[in-house]
Structures are given as structure tokens and as C-alpha cells.
Design a protein around this nucleic acid. Structure first.
Lengths: 129, 129
DNA sequence: CTCGTATTCAACTCATCGGTTGACAAGACC
DNA sequence: GGTCTTGTCAACCGATGAGTTGAATACGAG
């Protein structure tokens, strides 16, 4: 799964990982500190951190044998941008719903869907698996 | 995987699904229309739609044997709220980084991480797997 | 050098995911 | 009533994910 957006979304699709991010938003922490509240092994948490790190959500520095984990908030922008784009688009479409209905009335032989098309903006194309 | 947030994130973790959402933002579409650009079977696309529907991102009405698919933009808010919350928190923390460093200087015997803690806001708690 | 602590690596299990093929249900069309 | 179209359901397959245990690495403290 190469693309960054997929990595970020799927990293946050796990409640444990989301909780870690929430805690890291408050303060940096070591692996052991992070692991403490959950009843899974430290190894499992280490794996979760690797996922978050691969997604760019988190970075680790080095302090003796400790590896403090730090939240990288910038990556959030990647998601918010994607989301906001299509949310706005969908909402705009909702706003002019009456206009669409109007156009459908004018061509009753045509099937739905087709009519409203053609203003399509096909970003993210070719990203299909 | 019960919780709604996980469902939404993981639904959007797939590029094909994300592309469908992008196209649905422009216009409603039938399953076959949606399937056309991808070189997978219609059944696969039907499955993808089920995932999106379970996440609440999409709804289907009935028009004879067709099932027009419609994007439900409201669910996006769930994500944006979550994201914005922790992004803001993390950025605020970044802003007052110098203050934190100051405090660390005052207690040089204490280990990092510990010091910055205790202002923690532990939302989403109990959501851990 | 040895010991304890913090973290990761390796190998394994089990469940879920994305995809397939094949059969089936529901309507429109003749 | 047949048949074509649209869509879903069921069973299966290979890959990946989240978890485990057990061993290895890296470093600081005696």
C-alpha cells in the first residue's frame, strides 16, 4: 500500500492507535509509557508505533536506550485537505440540487446520474488499486 | 470493529474507495457506472460500496433494478472534528515549546516526557481495543 | 564485565480484506 | 412467459494486520 493518504487513513483506523495519537498530542512519551494503559504487550505497541511512523504521523528521536515518540501534526493536513475538498464539492452540489432537478425535468428520456455528470473533476485518478 | 470513527477511517484507507467518493462528490451514480473505470468485477465494487455504506459515507435509494448511490457528506465532520482537535492541541503544544524547555531546565534531574505531562486531556479514553 | 531496562526483530497464529467465480433475485422489455 | 440487465449473496483464495512468545540488541549502572 504505497500512497501516503492510504497509510495515514489506515493508521488512524485503529482505536488503539488513535488513542496513542490523542495522548501524544498532549505530550511526547516513550514506548513503555505509551504501552502502559493498554493490556497488550510492549511489542504490539512498538508495532503500532511503526505504523504511525510509516504514515508520518509520528517521529522518534534517540535518548540513550529510550526512543521518545513525538507527534507530527503536519500530516493531518493531507487528510483535511482531501476531506474538505470533497465535502465542499458535495455540499455545493446539495445547494444546487434544485437546479439539477430542473435539468432532469427538461430531458425526461435520459436516465438519472448521466445528466448531472460532465462537470466532474476526477482528481486522485489512477490511484485506483 | 464497532466504532464509527474506525469504520470511516478504514473505509477511506482504500484508494479505489476514495476515488469512488471523489466521483460521487460530483454526481450520484449507479453501481455499474461506478465500476466502469476500474478493472475489477462489479461484485468487488458492490463490496466496496457496502463498506462505504456501513461507514455512513454513502446511501442507496431504489429506482427499479438500479440502486443509485449518493454521497453523505455529514460523516466527514466526524473525522474532521477528531483530526482538528488533536492537531490544534499538538500545534498549541508546539507554540509553547519554549515554555516546556524552560520547565525542563528547572528540573534537570527529571527525565524528559514526564515534565510536560499532567496537563493531559485524555479524551477518547476507553476506546482502546 | 555483568546486570537490568528499553526497544526491536523473528516466527508464528488467527481474523479480516480485497479480489475472484458462480449462482441467484428483481425488474424492464419483447 | 422468456430474456436481458442490474445488482447482491456465497464460497473460496492469497495477502495483510494485529496480536502473541521468545530471542536479540543497545545502553546505563554497579
Amino acid at each position: 500500500m504505497a500512497d501516503p493518504l492510504s497509510r495515514v487513513f489506515s493508521a488512524l483506523a485503529d482505536p488503539t492507535r488513535r488513542d496513542m495519537v490523542a495522548r501524544l498530542a498532549a505530550a511526547d512519551a516513550t514506548v513503555n509509557e505509551l504501552a502502559e494503559p493498554y493490556d497488550v504487550t510492549v511489542q504490539a505497541v512498538s508495532k503500532h508505533l511503526k505504523v504511525l511512523e510509516d504514515a508520518g504521523l509520528v517521529s522518534r528521536s534517540r535518548d540513550a536506550q529510550r526512543r521518545p515518540v513525538h507527534l507530527e501534526a503536519e500530516v493531518f493536513d493531507l487528510m483535511t485537505k482531501w476531506i474538505e475538498r470533497y465535502r465542499r464539492q458535495a455540499e455545493a452540489r446539495y445547494q444546487r440540487l434544485d437546479a439539477v432537478l430542473e435539468e432532469l425535468k427538461n430531458r425526461p428520456t435520459d436516465r438519472a446520474g448521466r445528466a448531472a455528470r460532465a462537470d466532474g473533476d476526477d482528481a486522485d485518478k489512477g490511484a485506483a488499486s
